[in-house]
Every structure is written in C-alpha cells, then in structure tokens.
Simulated assay, not measured.
Amino acid sequence: MSPVIAAPIDRLLYKPEEAAEALAVGRSTVYELMAEGALTYIKLGRIRRIRRADLETYVKNLAPCPADLSTPRGAPSIPLGAPPAWRNT
C-alpha cells in the first residue's frame, strides 16, 4: 500500500522565506522588495508576513523585459563599462 500524500495547505500568509521560495528569488531579495515598498507586507507584533494576494499582485505588476532588437541574434553583446579592448571601433 502506498503512503497517502496530503495536498499542500493553501496559505493566506507567508513568511519572507516562504515568499522567496514562491517567487523563486533569494530571501534577501524579498526583504529588499519589502523595504523599497515594492512588496506589501503586514506586521504581527515583531514578525512580518506577506499576504498571498500581495504576492500575486506583485507578480501581476511585473513588466516583461523587452526584446533587445539592437543586437542581432547570435551576435556577442558588449558589456556596459567594458574596457576599450572590448569595444568595436
């Protein structure tokens, strides 16, 4: 007989570490987003929690990166601030 696996609980509040996992970013990134005001959180005494709805809103408001049409596909890009030897003259 195989073990029964319970369905994950659909949380209403996430710890910053759990929010980081849900967003696939680091814990420090979540704390930076909260400090910048980009990710809304609530305080319960001394702890911070992030509402599921606020995570969803944050993701919904992320702007997709535009395609870089200035560099032909497959062509090497020159890093910004690269030494002159990297630049095409």
Rank of each mutant, 00 (worst) to 15 (best):
M1L: 09
M1S: 12
S2T: 11
S2H: 10
P3W: 07
I5T: 11
I5H: 03
I5A: 06
I5V: 14
A7T: 13
A7K: 15
P8L: 06
P8Q: 14
P8C: 10
P8K: 13
I9A: 12
D10N: 03
R11K: 15
R11H: 10
Y14C: 02
Y14D: 05
K15L: 07
P16Y: 02
E18Q: 15
E18F: 05
E18W: 03
A19I: 13
A19L: 09
A20P: 12
A20W: 04
L23H: 09
L23M: 15
L23Y: 02
A24G: 11
V25D: 06
V25C: 11
V25N: 03
G26W: 01
R27H: 04
R27K: 08
S28N: 14
S28L: 13
S28V: 10
V30W: 01
V30F: 01
V30L: 08
Y31M: 01
Y31P: 00
Y31I: 06
E32D: 13
E32Y: 10
L33D: 05
L33P: 04
M34T: 08
M34V: 15
A35T: 11
A35H: 13
E36L: 12
E36P: 04
G37Q: 08
G37F: 04
A38W: 03
L39A: 08
L39K: 12
L39M: 11
T40M: 09
Y41W: 03
Y41T: 01
Y41H: 15
I42R: 00
I42H: 02
K43S: 12
K43E: 12
L44G: 02
L44V: 15
G45M: 00
R46L: 05
I47L: 12
R48G: 02
R48Q: 00
R48W: 01
R48H: 07
R49C: 02
R49T: 01
R49K: 07
I50N: 02
I50L: 02
I50Q: 05
R51C: 07
R51N: 09
R51W: 01
R51H: 11
A53E: 15
A53M: 04
D54M: 11
L55C: 05
L55P: 07
E56A: 07
E56I: 09
T57D: 12
Y58S: 07
Y58F: 15
K60L: 10
K60F: 06
L62I: 14
L62N: 05
A63H: 09
A63Q: 13
P64L: 14
C65E: 14
C65Y: 08
C65L: 15
P66R: 07
L69Y: 12
S70A: 14
S70K: 09
T71L: 08
T71M: 08
P72M: 04
R73E: 02
R73A: 04
R73T: 11
R73M: 00
R73G: 04
G74K: 03
A75E: 06
A75D: 05
S77M: 10
S77D: 06
P79F: 03
P79G: 06
L80H: 11
G81K: 00
G81W: 03
G81L: 00
A82S: 00
A82L: 00
P83F: 00
P83M: 01
P83C: 05
P83K: 00
P83Q: 03
P84K: 10
P84R: 15
W86N: 00
W86E: 04
W86Q: 02
R87L: 15
R87F: 10
N88Q: 13
N88W: 09
N88S: 07
N88M: 07
T89F: 10
T89K: 12
